[in-house]
Design a binder for these strands. Sequence first.
DNA 1: CTATGAATGTAATATCATAACAGGTCAAGT
DNA 2: ACTTGACCTGTTATGATATTACATTCATAG
Lengths: 169, 169
Amino acid sequence: MSARHSSADHGTDPAFAAHDHAHCATDALARAEAVAEAAGARLTPVRRRVLEILLEEHKALGAYEVLRRLAEAGFGNQPPVAYRALEFLVDHGLAHRIQRLNAFTACTHAGAAHAPAFLICEVCATVAEADAGPARTALETAATALGFVVERSTIEALGLCPACRTDAA
Amino acid sequence: MSARHSSADHGTDPAFAAHDHAHCATDALARAEAVAEAAGARLTPVRRRVLEILLEEHKALGAYEVLRRLAEAGFGNQPPVAYRALEFLVDHGLAHRIQRLNAFTACTHAGAAHAPAFLICEVCATVAEADAGPARTALETAATALGFVVERSTIEALGLCPACRTDAA
DNA sequence: CTATGAATGTAATATCATAACAGGTCAAGT
DNA sequence: ACTTGACCTGTTATGATATTACATTCATAG
Protein backbone atom coordinates (compact mmCIF):
# COMPACT_ATOMS: atom_id res chain seq x y z
CA MET A 1 0.00 0.00 0.00
CA SER A 2 1.23 3.41 -0.82
CA ALA A 3 -1.02 6.27 -0.16
CA ARG A 4 -1.44 7.39 3.46
CA HIS A 5 -0.06 10.92 3.24
CA SER A 6 0.92 10.58 -0.32
CA SER A 7 2.34 12.79 -2.96
CA ALA A 8 -0.72 13.62 -4.95
CA ASP A 9 -4.38 12.98 -4.62
CA HIS A 10 -4.17 9.59 -6.10
CA GLY A 11 -5.42 6.72 -4.02
CA THR A 12 -6.91 8.79 -1.26
CA ASP A 13 -9.76 11.12 -0.43
CA PRO A 14 -9.77 14.29 1.65
CA ALA A 15 -11.94 12.59 4.23
CA PHE A 16 -9.39 9.84 4.72
CA ALA A 17 -6.21 11.84 4.46
CA ALA A 18 -4.47 14.34 6.66
CA HIS A 19 -5.09 17.67 5.01
CA ASP A 20 -5.37 21.38 5.63
CA HIS A 21 -8.97 21.25 6.67
CA ALA A 22 -9.52 24.97 7.08
CA HIS A 23 -8.43 25.40 3.51
CA CYS A 24 -10.60 22.50 2.40
CA ALA A 25 -13.64 24.10 3.99
CA THR A 26 -12.87 27.59 2.72
CA ASP A 27 -12.50 26.21 -0.77
CA ALA A 28 -15.80 24.42 -0.56
CA LEU A 29 -17.54 27.62 0.54
CA ALA A 30 -16.02 29.54 -2.31
CA ARG A 31 -17.15 26.89 -4.75
CA ALA A 32 -20.59 27.01 -3.18
CA GLU A 33 -20.85 30.74 -3.79
CA ALA A 34 -19.90 30.18 -7.39
CA VAL A 35 -22.37 27.34 -7.84
CA ALA A 36 -25.20 29.34 -6.33
CA GLU A 37 -24.39 32.35 -8.42
CA ALA A 38 -24.27 30.28 -11.57
CA ALA A 39 -27.66 28.79 -10.74
CA GLY A 40 -29.20 32.20 -10.10
CA ALA A 41 -29.76 31.19 -6.49
CA ARG A 42 -28.62 32.81 -3.28
CA LEU A 43 -26.35 31.31 -0.69
CA THR A 44 -28.16 33.04 2.15
CA PRO A 45 -26.84 33.22 5.71
CA VAL A 46 -28.78 30.16 6.87
CA ARG A 47 -27.70 28.11 3.91
CA ARG A 48 -24.14 29.24 4.22
CA ARG A 49 -24.10 28.48 7.91
CA VAL A 50 -25.53 25.01 7.33
CA LEU A 51 -22.84 24.32 4.79
CA GLU A 52 -20.21 25.56 7.22
CA ILE A 53 -21.60 23.26 9.89
CA LEU A 54 -21.45 20.29 7.54
CA LEU A 55 -17.94 21.25 6.53
CA GLU A 56 -16.64 21.21 10.08
CA GLU A 57 -15.99 17.51 9.85
CA HIS A 58 -16.07 14.83 7.20
CA LYS A 59 -19.00 13.18 8.88
CA ALA A 60 -22.70 13.07 8.27
CA LEU A 61 -24.95 15.08 10.58
CA GLY A 62 -28.61 14.53 11.23
CA ALA A 63 -30.96 17.39 10.42
CA TYR A 64 -31.68 17.96 14.10
CA GLU A 65 -28.03 18.21 14.97
CA VAL A 66 -27.62 20.79 12.22
CA LEU A 67 -30.68 22.54 13.58
CA ARG A 68 -29.28 22.60 17.09
CA ARG A 69 -26.10 24.26 15.88
CA LEU A 70 -28.05 26.68 13.72
CA ALA A 71 -30.08 27.71 16.73
CA GLU A 72 -26.86 28.29 18.67
CA ALA A 73 -25.88 30.66 15.90
CA GLY A 74 -29.11 32.58 16.35
CA PHE A 75 -31.17 31.13 13.53
CA GLY A 76 -34.64 29.69 13.87
CA ASN A 77 -34.85 26.41 15.66
CA GLN A 78 -37.78 24.69 14.03
CA PRO A 79 -37.09 21.67 11.82
CA PRO A 80 -38.07 23.26 8.50
CA VAL A 81 -35.29 25.79 8.87
CA ALA A 82 -32.72 23.03 8.74
CA TYR A 83 -34.54 20.83 6.25
CA ARG A 84 -35.02 23.64 3.78
CA ALA A 85 -31.41 24.70 3.85
CA LEU A 86 -30.29 21.10 3.54
CA GLU A 87 -32.62 20.55 0.63
CA PHE A 88 -31.19 23.60 -1.10
CA LEU A 89 -27.65 22.36 -0.64
CA VAL A 90 -28.48 18.87 -1.83
CA ASP A 91 -30.39 20.18 -4.85
CA HIS A 92 -27.40 22.25 -5.83
CA GLY A 93 -24.89 19.46 -5.33
CA LEU A 94 -23.25 21.15 -2.36
CA ALA A 95 -24.20 18.46 0.11
CA HIS A 96 -25.37 14.88 -0.05
CA ARG A 97 -27.91 12.87 1.80
CA ILE A 98 -26.65 9.60 3.21
CA GLN A 99 -29.65 7.28 3.10
CA ARG A 100 -28.16 4.73 5.40
CA LEU A 101 -27.79 7.29 8.16
CA ASN A 102 -30.70 9.62 7.47
CA ALA A 103 -28.06 12.30 7.60
CA PHE A 104 -26.24 14.85 5.49
CA THR A 105 -22.65 15.54 4.55
CA ALA A 106 -20.95 18.39 2.71
CA CYS A 107 -19.84 17.64 -0.79
CA THR A 108 -16.08 17.41 -0.91
CA HIS A 109 -15.78 17.60 -4.66
CA ALA A 110 -16.02 20.29 -7.25
CA GLY A 111 -19.35 21.77 -8.15
CA ALA A 112 -19.62 19.51 -11.15
CA ALA A 113 -22.70 17.33 -11.15
CA HIS A 114 -21.85 13.99 -9.73
CA ALA A 115 -23.41 11.06 -7.98
CA PRO A 116 -20.69 9.43 -5.97
CA ALA A 117 -20.68 6.31 -3.87
CA PHE A 118 -20.32 6.91 -0.15
CA LEU A 119 -17.94 5.09 2.11
CA ILE A 120 -19.07 5.23 5.70
CA CYS A 121 -16.68 4.20 8.46
CA GLU A 122 -18.48 2.21 11.15
CA VAL A 123 -15.95 3.19 13.77
CA CYS A 124 -15.28 6.89 13.35
CA ALA A 125 -18.32 7.77 11.21
CA THR A 126 -16.23 9.52 8.60
CA VAL A 127 -17.89 9.65 5.21
CA ALA A 128 -15.88 9.79 2.00
CA GLU A 129 -16.97 9.97 -1.59
CA ALA A 130 -15.72 7.42 -4.08
CA ASP A 131 -16.11 7.19 -7.80
CA ALA A 132 -19.35 5.37 -8.42
CA GLY A 133 -19.02 5.33 -12.20
CA PRO A 134 -18.19 1.67 -12.73
CA ALA A 135 -20.61 0.49 -10.05
CA ARG A 136 -23.37 2.59 -11.53
CA THR A 137 -22.66 1.19 -14.96
CA ALA A 138 -22.84 -2.34 -13.61
CA LEU A 139 -26.11 -1.55 -11.87
CA GLU A 140 -27.46 -0.03 -15.04
CA THR A 141 -26.59 -3.18 -16.92
CA ALA A 142 -28.34 -5.40 -14.40
CA ALA A 143 -31.39 -3.13 -14.41
CA THR A 144 -31.59 -2.92 -18.18
CA ALA A 145 -31.52 -6.70 -18.39
CA LEU A 146 -34.79 -6.64 -16.43
CA GLY A 147 -36.29 -3.87 -18.53
CA PHE A 148 -35.90 -1.28 -15.78
CA VAL A 149 -34.83 2.28 -16.51
CA VAL A 150 -32.66 3.76 -13.80
CA GLU A 151 -33.11 7.44 -13.04
CA ARG A 152 -31.20 7.80 -9.80
CA SER A 153 -29.26 5.36 -7.73
CA THR A 154 -27.90 5.14 -4.25
CA ILE A 155 -24.62 3.37 -3.63
CA GLU A 156 -23.32 3.33 -0.09
CA ALA A 157 -20.83 1.13 1.70
CA LEU A 158 -20.34 0.55 5.41
CA GLY A 159 -16.94 -0.57 6.54
CA LEU A 160 -13.63 0.56 7.90
CA CYS A 161 -11.73 3.64 6.80
CA PRO A 162 -7.95 3.37 6.36
CA ALA A 163 -7.19 4.80 9.79
CA CYS A 164 -9.65 2.65 11.72
CA ARG A 165 -8.68 -0.43 9.80
CA THR A 166 -5.09 0.14 10.85
CA ASP A 167 -6.11 0.69 14.46
CA ALA A 168 -8.15 -2.50 14.42
CA ALA A 169 -5.24 -4.56 13.16
CA MET B 1 -25.69 -25.37 -5.91
CA SER B 2 -25.98 -24.75 -9.59
CA ALA B 3 -27.53 -21.80 -11.24
CA ARG B 4 -31.20 -21.20 -11.83
CA HIS B 5 -32.81 -23.67 -14.12
CA SER B 6 -32.42 -22.74 -17.73
CA SER B 7 -33.59 -19.98 -19.94
CA ALA B 8 -37.10 -19.69 -18.56
CA ASP B 9 -36.28 -17.07 -15.96
CA HIS B 10 -33.80 -15.05 -17.90
CA GLY B 11 -34.32 -11.38 -18.45
CA THR B 12 -37.09 -10.79 -15.99
CA ASP B 13 -37.97 -10.81 -12.33
CA PRO B 14 -41.10 -12.03 -10.60
CA ALA B 15 -41.89 -8.49 -9.53
CA PHE B 16 -41.90 -7.26 -13.10
CA ALA B 17 -43.53 -10.20 -14.82
CA ALA B 18 -47.02 -11.56 -14.88
CA HIS B 19 -46.89 -14.64 -12.73
CA ASP B 20 -48.95 -16.93 -10.56
CA HIS B 21 -48.65 -14.78 -7.51
CA ALA B 22 -50.44 -17.07 -5.10
CA HIS B 23 -47.94 -19.74 -6.01
CA CYS B 24 -45.07 -17.29 -5.71
CA ALA B 25 -46.16 -16.38 -2.19
CA THR B 26 -46.83 -19.95 -1.14
CA ASP B 27 -43.40 -20.93 -2.37
CA ALA B 28 -41.78 -18.15 -0.43
CA LEU B 29 -43.54 -19.22 2.75
CA ALA B 30 -42.43 -22.79 2.27
CA ARG B 31 -38.87 -21.65 1.76
CA ALA B 32 -39.18 -19.49 4.83
CA GLU B 33 -40.19 -22.47 6.93
CA ALA B 34 -37.19 -24.35 5.63
CA VAL B 35 -34.81 -21.47 6.27
CA ALA B 36 -36.08 -20.98 9.81
CA GLU B 37 -35.85 -24.68 10.53
CA ALA B 38 -32.32 -24.84 9.17
CA ALA B 39 -31.33 -21.93 11.36
CA GLY B 40 -32.86 -23.48 14.45
CA ALA B 41 -35.30 -20.60 14.62
CA ARG B 42 -39.07 -20.58 14.63
CA LEU B 43 -41.37 -19.00 12.09
CA THR B 44 -43.92 -18.06 14.71
CA PRO B 45 -47.43 -16.86 13.86
CA VAL B 46 -46.53 -13.17 14.02
CA ARG B 47 -43.46 -13.64 11.89
CA ARG B 48 -45.31 -15.78 9.42
CA ARG B 49 -48.11 -13.28 9.20
CA VAL B 50 -45.69 -10.42 8.62
CA LEU B 51 -44.08 -12.36 5.82
CA GLU B 52 -47.49 -13.07 4.33
CA ILE B 53 -48.31 -9.38 4.48
CA LEU B 54 -45.10 -8.46 2.71
CA LEU B 55 -45.75 -11.17 0.15
CA GLU B 56 -49.14 -9.80 -0.80
CA GLU B 57 -47.53 -7.43 -3.26
CA HIS B 58 -44.09 -6.82 -4.69
CA LYS B 59 -43.89 -3.50 -2.94
CA ALA B 60 -42.19 -2.21 0.13
CA LEU B 61 -44.31 -1.56 3.20
CA GLY B 62 -43.49 0.70 6.10
CA ALA B 63 -43.32 -0.90 9.53
CA TYR B 64 -46.46 0.92 10.63
CA GLU B 65 -48.44 -0.31 7.66
CA VAL B 66 -47.34 -3.83 8.49
CA LEU B 67 -48.32 -3.17 12.08
CA ARG B 68 -51.74 -1.90 11.09
CA ARG B 69 -52.41 -5.09 9.16
CA LEU B 70 -51.04 -7.24 11.96
CA ALA B 71 -53.40 -5.58 14.38
CA GLU B 72 -56.30 -6.32 12.00
CA ALA B 73 -55.28 -9.95 12.23
CA GLY B 74 -55.48 -9.82 16.00
CA PHE B 75 -51.84 -9.41 16.89
CA GLY B 76 -50.44 -6.73 19.14
CA ASN B 77 -50.48 -3.26 17.71
CA GLN B 78 -47.45 -1.65 19.29
CA PRO B 79 -44.48 -0.84 17.06
CA PRO B 80 -42.05 -3.34 18.55
CA VAL B 81 -44.30 -6.19 17.48
CA ALA B 82 -43.80 -5.26 13.85
CA TYR B 83 -40.18 -4.19 14.14
CA ARG B 84 -39.16 -7.40 15.87
CA ALA B 85 -40.79 -9.62 13.32
CA LEU B 86 -39.31 -7.57 10.49
CA GLU B 87 -35.89 -7.74 12.07
CA PHE B 88 -36.18 -11.50 12.30
CA LEU B 89 -37.13 -11.79 8.65
CA VAL B 90 -34.35 -9.47 7.52
CA ASP B 91 -31.77 -11.28 9.66
CA HIS B 92 -32.76 -14.55 8.10
CA GLY B 93 -32.75 -13.25 4.56
CA LEU B 94 -36.52 -13.60 4.18
CA ALA B 95 -37.14 -9.89 3.76
CA HIS B 96 -35.08 -6.85 2.93
CA ARG B 97 -35.00 -3.34 4.16
CA ILE B 98 -35.17 -0.68 1.46
CA GLN B 99 -33.14 2.22 2.82
CA ARG B 100 -34.47 4.70 0.36
CA LEU B 101 -38.02 4.11 1.52
CA ASN B 102 -37.54 3.23 5.16
CA ALA B 103 -39.62 0.22 4.30
CA PHE B 104 -39.51 -3.54 3.93
CA THR B 105 -40.12 -6.03 1.17
CA ALA B 106 -40.32 -9.81 1.08
CA CYS B 107 -37.37 -11.57 -0.44
CA THR B 108 -38.32 -13.03 -3.78
CA HIS B 109 -35.31 -15.25 -4.11
CA ALA B 110 -34.17 -18.51 -2.65
CA GLY B 111 -33.03 -18.71 0.94
CA ALA B 112 -29.41 -18.50 -0.11
CA ALA B 113 -27.54 -15.61 1.42
CA HIS B 114 -27.56 -12.74 -0.96
CA ALA B 115 -27.32 -8.98 -1.05
CA PRO B 116 -29.15 -7.85 -4.13
CA ALA B 117 -29.59 -4.45 -5.67
CA PHE B 118 -33.13 -3.10 -5.50
CA LEU B 119 -34.99 -1.54 -8.37
CA ILE B 120 -37.75 0.72 -7.15
CA CYS B 121 -40.37 1.95 -9.59
CA GLU B 122 -41.23 5.59 -8.97
CA VAL B 123 -44.65 5.19 -10.50
CA CYS B 124 -46.10 1.96 -9.17
CA ALA B 125 -43.73 1.46 -6.22
CA THR B 126 -42.93 -2.10 -7.22
CA VAL B 127 -39.60 -3.30 -5.91
CA ALA B 128 -37.56 -5.94 -7.70
CA GLU B 129 -34.26 -7.51 -6.85
CA ALA B 130 -31.42 -7.48 -9.34
CA ASP B 131 -28.05 -9.12 -9.28
CA ALA B 132 -25.73 -6.73 -7.49
CA GLY B 133 -22.62 -8.83 -7.95
CA PRO B 134 -20.84 -6.79 -10.62
CA ALA B 135 -21.86 -3.47 -9.07
CA ARG B 136 -20.65 -4.61 -5.68
CA THR B 137 -17.36 -5.70 -7.17
CA ALA B 138 -16.93 -2.31 -8.82
CA LEU B 139 -17.74 -0.56 -5.57
CA GLU B 140 -15.26 -2.77 -3.76
CA THR B 141 -12.59 -1.82 -6.25
CA ALA B 142 -13.25 1.88 -5.83
CA ALA B 143 -13.26 1.53 -2.05
CA THR B 144 -10.08 -0.51 -1.94
CA ALA B 145 -8.31 2.13 -4.00
CA LEU B 146 -9.00 4.52 -1.12
CA GLY B 147 -7.91 2.04 1.52
CA PHE B 148 -11.47 1.42 2.69
CA VAL B 149 -12.66 -2.05 3.63
CA VAL B 150 -16.28 -2.66 2.70
CA GLU B 151 -18.34 -4.77 5.06
CA ARG B 152 -21.86 -4.18 3.79
CA SER B 153 -23.20 -2.14 0.95
CA THR B 154 -26.50 -0.75 -0.16
CA ILE B 155 -27.30 -0.51 -3.84
CA GLU B 156 -30.70 0.84 -4.81
CA ALA B 157 -32.04 2.37 -7.98
CA LEU B 158 -35.08 4.54 -8.53
CA GLY B 159 -36.61 4.55 -11.96
CA LEU B 160 -39.28 3.03 -14.14
CA CYS B 161 -40.25 -0.60 -14.23
CA PRO B 162 -40.95 -2.22 -17.59
CA ALA B 163 -44.72 -1.78 -17.32
CA CYS B 164 -44.64 1.86 -16.23
CA ARG B 165 -41.99 2.71 -18.77
CA THR B 166 -44.24 1.34 -21.49
CA ASP B 167 -47.22 3.29 -20.16
CA ALA B 168 -45.17 6.47 -20.07
CA ALA B 169 -44.07 6.11 -23.69
C1' DC C 1 -42.97 53.69 -2.13
C1' DT C 2 -45.15 49.41 -2.66
C1' DA C 3 -46.19 45.08 -4.94
C1' DT C 4 -43.98 40.87 -5.68
C1' DG C 5 -41.75 36.62 -4.96
C1' DA C 6 -38.27 34.28 -2.31
C1' DA C 7 -36.69 33.09 2.06
C1' DT C 8 -37.35 32.45 6.81
C1' DG C 9 -39.91 31.76 11.19
C1' DT C 10 -43.33 29.13 13.77
C1' DA C 11 -46.92 25.82 15.25
C1' DA C 12 -48.65 21.65 14.81
C1' DT C 13 -48.44 17.09 13.41
C1' DA C 14 -47.05 12.97 10.89
C1' DT C 15 -43.91 9.21 10.41
C1' DC C 16 -40.23 6.10 11.71
C1' DA C 17 -37.76 3.61 15.50
C1' DT C 18 -36.15 1.90 20.06
C1' DA C 19 -35.62 1.21 25.24
C1' DA C 20 -37.30 -0.97 29.14
C1' DC C 21 -39.99 -4.01 31.43
C1' DA C 22 -43.92 -7.50 32.25
C1' DG C 23 -45.90 -11.71 31.29
C1' DG C 24 -46.54 -16.05 28.64
C1' DT C 25 -44.97 -20.42 26.41
C1' DC C 26 -42.43 -24.36 25.93
C1' DA C 27 -38.87 -27.80 26.06
C1' DA C 28 -34.85 -29.76 28.82
C1' DG C 29 -33.26 -31.45 32.82
C1' DT C 30 -34.24 -32.92 37.34
C1' DA D 1 -44.75 -32.77 38.07
C1' DC D 2 -41.68 -28.95 38.97
C1' DT D 3 -38.14 -25.74 37.92
C1' DT D 4 -35.34 -23.42 35.08
C1' DG D 5 -34.08 -20.75 31.36
C1' DA D 6 -34.45 -19.23 26.72
C1' DC D 7 -37.28 -17.12 23.70
C1' DC D 8 -41.23 -14.74 22.17
C1' DT D 9 -44.96 -11.43 22.61
C1' DG D 10 -47.37 -7.51 24.66
C1' DT D 11 -47.33 -2.81 26.43
C1' DT D 12 -45.82 1.76 27.95
C1' DA D 13 -43.20 5.38 27.04
C1' DT D 14 -40.17 8.06 24.54
C1' DG D 15 -36.91 9.40 21.05
C1' DA D 16 -35.65 10.57 16.28
C1' DT D 17 -36.74 11.98 11.73
C1' DA D 18 -39.66 14.67 8.51
C1' DT D 19 -43.56 17.44 6.56
C1' DT D 20 -47.72 20.58 6.11
C1' DA D 21 -49.62 24.88 6.56
C1' DC D 22 -49.51 29.39 7.49
C1' DA D 23 -47.44 33.92 9.13
C1' DT D 24 -43.77 37.15 8.65
C1' DT D 25 -39.73 39.37 6.79
C1' DC D 26 -36.82 41.06 3.19
C1' DA D 27 -34.72 42.40 -1.15
C1' DT D 28 -35.75 44.42 -5.19
C1' DA D 29 -38.15 45.50 -9.70
C1' DG D 30 -41.62 48.43 -11.09
